[in-house]
Every structure is written in structure tokens, then in C-alpha cells.
Nucleic acid binder design. Structure first.
Lengths: 227, 227
DNA sequence: GAAATGAATATTGAATTCATAATATTTTTT
DNA sequence: AAAAAATATTATGAATTCAATATTCATTTC
């Protein structure tokens, strides 16, 4: 028996548009034609416009009155600000996780960590990133704070487009792995303060931003590199 | 010459509904009748429904497919989680503010602080809260991080309804004022780490939640006390 | 030839209409 | 009279229509 259809059309549409933006098929700053998207998705303008309003309040799209919608342009400052925020949220997630996490969850994270280390040793960047992200998400989940998770994933979504436009130098990479070693140790000790501290200072995110910042001017629009 | 009208109807409507929720005129869990609100505002269903979608993604309203909208119910856990988050964001705002704040801005905050002290000495609760909030907002603004400000004000909006349902005991109040003294000193010294720390631990918010939590069960719905 | 004006076109904003799902009411049955 | 079924009513979801606003393009003026 297939899932009962109980999702509204505007939610589907929002998902699809979100994908298009993430994939870069709709480029930053590009005008979003209601007509074109309606035809593409085979829906009327009503649910599409509702979806655009949702995406706007998620910060993925900007709506100009009487002038339609554009894909939100990312500036270096915005990305930098967003990562500062995400770092603070991760810090909080670490503190909370240490209070709430179960032994089983810790073990699961340790296993992910081991797996990540293997990818690091073999210098497999993409699998490394995938597991890396899973670790951070696991800690976030272990925090037990759903509002935090919701906020974090929104922020993460906003900057997803620039995520893969980075080159990881070897020394940065080594540092990141070291940070992770420390994280695991703090987590095992359930030392919330320390884990929070490590996560806040964990350079990974900030570095990639810095590397981008080197490429273009400060309040310049950010060009998105597709994978 | 008055400002040319360039705001969309759905934005106006969203503002008005937000007010109704904040004021408690629309109670938590209450069903929102599209028809009733349309008549009240004199608009058609289209802009109203768009507004509801925005409010839903702000977390003020929940939409049940085919079953209309309800004012989001707050549970003690949600409020607790939200305050934890806000504390972390305030901490970040303190750290960033110390990096960016101008001498003039510091002076303005000091003046607010003096004013707040006067209200404290005279035990004028509401004016005290008003200035208190202005101080926190000023620090937030001085952080220069607009994404942070946006997130914070969203979170703050969500829990505004329970804001006034607190009783401030004298010892808590004294502690809060002491925290503020320390904040000012850290700010003057531009000691970001310390200011961040103080703000994160600043009990004000957490206390009021704790006091509420004492009143009702943990995942119970929160009853809102109107002023 | 460039800038400015005005008509034509296209696009968005909002109201209305139509279809469908949920709720309330009445009727039937036991 | 209570429970169940059938019907009617209402409310929501989505498409369509109408109106207002921008944009484009041709024409005029300097």
C-alpha cells in the first residue's frame, strides 16, 4: 500500500524548486519565471506562488513586489555570517548532546569516526565529507533540541550551494581530523563544555569560507561552482 | 509626501495575524478560520493563505492538510529548547559585538544600562524589561551579523506569547542586574569571550522558563497568560 | 544618434470559481 | 434510544479569471 497522499501541492513544488536551486539549475540572482516553472511542474500558479513564499522565508529566494522572484544571491559576508552562526549552533549541540546522548549513540558516532578516518587515509574527499556531515548531524540529533535542528538545517540549506567549491589543503585537512579526534574524546568523557568549544572552533567550515573569500571581493556576489 | 505603496497584501496580512497571535487574541491550538479572517481583514483567501504559509514556516502556525490552520501550540520543551538556542545566539552576538562595536555604540548601551538601573532601583518591572530588551537588541545589532539577527528575532517572536507570564523574584532580579554589570564591563574591555560567556549564562531567560516549567508538566501544552 | 515619450505586451497580484476532502446532520437500523 | 449509515453542508486545495503594475518596443524629439 502506497503512502496516502496527504501532502499539499505547494510542499512538493517547494521541494522541487529547492532542489533546482541547490543543484544550481536555477542560478543565484536568476529571475524565476512563474509561467515557466508552472509549465515545467504542470501546476497552476497558486501552489507555485505559495511555494515561493515559503522559500523566501527560508532565505533561498527573494521576492520583489510586482517584479517577481529571484534566486537569493549569496555574498561572502552572508556566507561568513551564516557559518559563524552554524558554528555557534554546533557548539550548543555538542554541549547538549553530552547531557543527553546514550552509550549506543556514542558508539555509532565512533564507528562513523573510524570510517571517516579510513577515507582520510585514502584521501577520498567526497566520502570523507559525507561521513563528516553524518557525524555532525548525529551530534545535532543527540542534542535532543528540535528547534536547534530545524534552524541548523535551514542555515545549512542556504549555503549548500557553495559547499563543494573548496579545495582542502593537506594541513587544513589534518587539522580537521585532529579536531574530530578531540571531539570523540570529549564526547566519550561527556565533557559538554569541551565538546562545545571544539565544535565552535572547528575550522572546517570557516576555512572553506576563507578560501572562497580569497577569490572574490567582500560584498561581491558569490559565484557558485557546480559539481 | 507619503511612502508609495509597494508592500504586498500577504505581508500586511501576515503582520496582522502575527499580532493577533502575539496578543493572544488567537489562542494557541485554536483553529484559524480562513473565512473569518478574510472577512475581518477584508481580503480574499489568496493573500491570507499565502500569509499563513509564511507564518507556518516561521513556526507560529501549523498547517494540517485539508484540515486548516491552527495557532502553534507551545510545549514547555519547545520553549526550553528555544531559550537554549537564544542563549547561544546571544553568546555569539556578544563575541562578535566586541570585535565590531564602536565607542559611540558602547556609550549608548551604557546609557541604557544606567536607565535600566534606575528602573531596577524603583522596581518598575515593565520599563526595566523594555530597556533590558533594548540592551540585548543593541548588542545583537552591534554584532553586525544580519543572519543572526534574523534568526534571533524569529525565535524571540515564537516565544513572545509566554514572555509576560513570569514573576521575578527579588534574588533573581538582583542576579540579572549583576549579570548586566558584568556585561557592561566586558563590553567596555571588548572582551568577547567573556561577554559571550556572560550572555550565554545570563539566567534571565532560563529562569522564566524554569518558573513556567514548575507550573505544568513537561510536554504539556503551555497555557498563555495574557497581560 | 541618443534620450525621452507613449503604446503594446507580458507578468505579477488578488479575487473568484470549481473540485474535493472533511465535518456536521439526518436518517435508518438494531 | 444508541449506533451506524447516508446525505448535506462547509471548508479547504487548486485552477482560472480579472486587474494592476512592470517591461518592452516603437516613435518622436532634441
Amino acid at each position: 500500500m502506497s503512502k496516502i497522499q496527504n501532502r499539499s501541492l505547494y510542499l512538493e513544488v517547494a521541494d522541487r524548486v529547492r532542489e533546482l536551486i541547490e543543484q544550481g539549475e536555477l542560478a543565484p540572482g536568476e529571475r524565476i519565471s512563474e509561467k515557466a516553472l508552472c509549465e515545467r511542474f504542470g501546476v497552476s500558479r497558486t501552489p507555485l506562488r505559495e511555494a515561493l513564499k515559503v522559500l523566501a522565508s527560508e532565505g533561498l529566494v527573494e521576492l520583489l513586489t510586482n517584479r517577481g522572484a529571484r534566486v537569493m544571491r549569496l555574498t561572502v559576508k552572508m556566507v561568513k555570517d551564516t557559518y559563524d552562526l552554524m558554528a555557534a549552533l554546533e557548539g550548543l549541540s555538542g554541549e547538549l548532546a553530552c547531557q543527553n546522548i546514550s552509550d549506543e549513540e556514542i558508539e555509532a558516532i565512533c564507528r562513523l569516526h573510524e570510517e571517516m578516518l579510513r577515507h582520510y587515509q585514502e584521501r577520498n574527499l567526497m566520502p570523507y565529507f559525507r561521513i563528516n556531515q553524518q557525524i555532525h548531524e548525529s551530534i545535532l540529533a543527540a542534542s535532543g533540541n528540535e528547534v536547534l535542528q530545524e534552524m541548523y538545517s535551514n542555515l545549512s540549506q542556504r549555503v549548500k550551494r557553495v559547499r563543494y567549491s573548496k579545495k582542502m589543503t593537506d594541513s587544513f585537512w589534518r587539522q580537521a581530523v585532529q579536531d574530530h579526534e578531540n571531539m570523540i574524546s570529549a564526547l566519550k568523557a561527556r565533557d559538554g563544555k569541551r565538546l562545545g568549544q571544539i565544535l565552535r572552533e572547528h575550522l572546517c567550515n570557516k576555512l572553506e569560507v576563507a578560501s572562497i573569500a580569497g577569490m572574490i571581493e567582500d560584498d561581491e556576489e558569490l559565484s557558485v561552482v557546480n559539481s
